[in-house]
């Protein structure tokens, strides 16, 4: 006989279902219960760095737009520090947020600042990136991915995570495209759940 390991086991995930907005963004469905829905101000007014807008669509295996998804965002500030770690961030910088796909068009977007480089194990450095987590009807376990920036070529080329992706052809699925519009710097990031150009997802 050996001693017993006494670890508990993680609660299994279940899909967030079609009505995830009631829980995470009730105002999007016209429910005014909370004085404020959480997650719709990611960087706050005092954040340093470049103000950017990130937007895109999510497509399923047929190429159809997913119109009932919710994306959560987790990112560092422009100096590469995360809120909630022991590094200082600007007052009001949360680094976390939520984006809801539009019920009609499927477009999702959020306003934030471009994050800085963050440390990786063994003295390496990670290219600027935003961590994303996607839940929706039909998704049994939230999908984790990363958004990198297509104008950060040298940093991306040295990024330990991008370099983990054996098929180089798949790395492009994590690059957001910089577009200068009249009112904002926009990064377009389309997510493909399945099929041609399928986005790389991580088991983190």
């Amino acid at each position: 006989m050996v001693q017993k390991l006494t670890y508990l086991q993680e609660t299994p995930s279940q899909t967030a279902g079609p009505y995830v907005h009631i829980g995470f963004a009730p105002r999007a469905t016209g429910i005014e219960i909370y004085n404020k829905d959480l997650g719709f101000d990611i960087a706050g007014p005092n954040a340093e760095g470049e103000r950017i807008r990130v937007e895109g669509h999510i497509k399923d295996g047929i190429g159809a737009k997913v119109k009932d998804a919710l994306i959560e965002v987790w990112q560092a500030n422009s100096k590469g520090n995360y809120a909630g770690s022991d590094s200082a961030v600007e007052e009001g910088f949360r680094g976390w947020g939520r984006a809801v796909t539009d019920f009609e068009t499927g477009l999702w977007r959020f306003e934030t600042i471009k994050p800085g480089q963050t440390p990786a194990p063994n003295g390496r450095v990670q290219a600027p990136h935003i961590n994303l987590w996607i839940v929706a009807r039909g998704i049994n376990l939230g999908l984790n991915t990363r958004l990198y920036f297509d104008d950060e070529e040298p940093a991306n080329a040295a990024d330990p995570t991008l370099n983990l992706i054996e098929q180089e052809e798949r790395r492009a699925s994590l690059l957001a495209t910089r577009i200068i519009q009249s009112d904002a710097v926009v990064y377009n990031f389309d997510i493909t759940l399945q099929g041609e150009g399928e986005t790389v997802f991580f088991d983190i």
């Binding site: 998704i139 759940l193 790389v200």
Partner: peptide, 8 residues
Amino acid sequence: SVSRSPNY
């Protein structure tokens, strides 16, 4: 889940 699950 059939059309919303990654193949890889």
